[in-house]
Design a protein around this nucleic acid. Sequence first.
DNA 1: ATTTTTCTTAAAGCTTTCTTAAAAAAACCT
DNA 2: AGGTTTTTTTAAGAAAGCTTTAAGAAAAAT
Lengths: 231, 231
Amino acid sequence: MAQETILLVDDEKEIVQLLDIYFRNEGYRLLKASDGIEALEALRSEAVDLIILDVMMPRMDGVEACMKIREHRHMPIIMLSAKGQDIDKITGLSIGADDYVTKPFSPLELVARAKSQLRRYKQLNRPAERESGEIEIDGLLVDVASHEVSVEGRAVKLTPREFAVLELLARNRGIVLSMERIYEHAWNEPFLDGGNTVMVHIRKIREKIERDPRNPRYIKTVWGVGYKIDK
Amino acid sequence: MAQETILLVDDEKEIVQLLDIYFRNEGYRLLKASDGIEALEALRSEAVDLIILDVMMPRMDGVEACMKIREHRHMPIIMLSAKGQDIDKITGLSIGADDYVTKPFSPLELVARAKSQLRRYKQLNRPAERESGEIEIDGLLVDVASHEVSVEGRAVKLTPREFAVLELLARNRGIVLSMERIYEHAWNEPFLDGGNTVMVHIRKIREKIERDPRNPRYIKTVWGVGYKIDK
DNA sequence: ATTTTTCTTAAAGCTTTCTTAAAAAAACCT
DNA sequence: AGGTTTTTTTAAGAAAGCTTTAAGAAAAAT
């Protein structure tokens, strides 16, 4: 998955530095700007997925920057405001921000809110991603929406991981997938050790969907390479 | 597909201007009215697919407008309300809005909810125009309009939140909904912490509608994914 | 302002799932 | 064929996820 970029706009060095650590730690790319003008410039040259804007800044404050950005861009914006800054006044303006956080705030909370906004934004951009909800292979039916699998009409209960592995293979019919690729896709984390977790899962899946696991009809072993479902 | 039309009713210029950008960008036609009276007029002369109504407006407020519209029309209505305005009532029988967003709202969230309502109504008008305001599942009756629920004829009293959760699941039969999605839909706010509030609510609902909560007939747990009601 | 209801939080207990390790089987290579 | 490597199979312990309870906080009703 591509790394997401966050633009943090604040003139207070300490805050920027602090948040830099937190967002980096969560795997985001963090761009920095210290006022509205800089922010607008940064937006011209970089692809940004989310903006965090402090309200109080020199040259161009957060409110103005927010409205300017909104004229052209629709990525989520989170506003940072100080306690005394009368939140109601800011939020009442309907400047188009998506969330508001008051200082002093917990960095973790801001990270959580940022994540939440990014999640929603991503979903919005691909709503019709019903990825053809169902995959049918011979007599094997994989229904992503309901998370159900059936073989020749008989329902089969798979665990989350098993489902992820089977779905991956089913979506890539005819393509051999290495253990690494399977692991990294289905587990969503790097494949480090040389464990045989994936194999064990394949075994479990076969046990459930194959009539004769020794002679699998669906998930074929490609010796020395990986697994695949034939086209 | 023909362009869909949204009628935005709000007296606050900034909000209208802001949303104009968003909905235009998403490919909708946006009509504007600044109070309930104008809204009703607009409805007479134009074909509208969805209405967004601010609760607080001069001349005729959103609540009254909503009720008036409901007398004649069957179309999705989303209310913009301040926090603390009896939300349960807004989506309840007397007022009859389909959804609501509280100010200050995230434009992205409003767009997402608008899309969701449009999708729902389109599906409703196509296969079998059966929105008697009731969803029937096996022996479970969910009355969307009056917010009443009964099992095998016996009335069951659910709290507003419980109802929101059950309604969401009932409207999405056969689809697994994650805790996140359930929370964000039924609570109308971002799911930040990893709390188990949703689970506790599910438990309460089961206690009320299931004969044997351990072996639920309606709300099924999908391990590691979420909850669903089977189709 | 008080009572009642609803919601949230936290923790304990239970169930399911995942991982690990090791032995057995199969495929490959020379 | 014999040795080597890779995959399959098993089983048990560890980890993760779900359920249930209960008590306090918050919200709503009176």
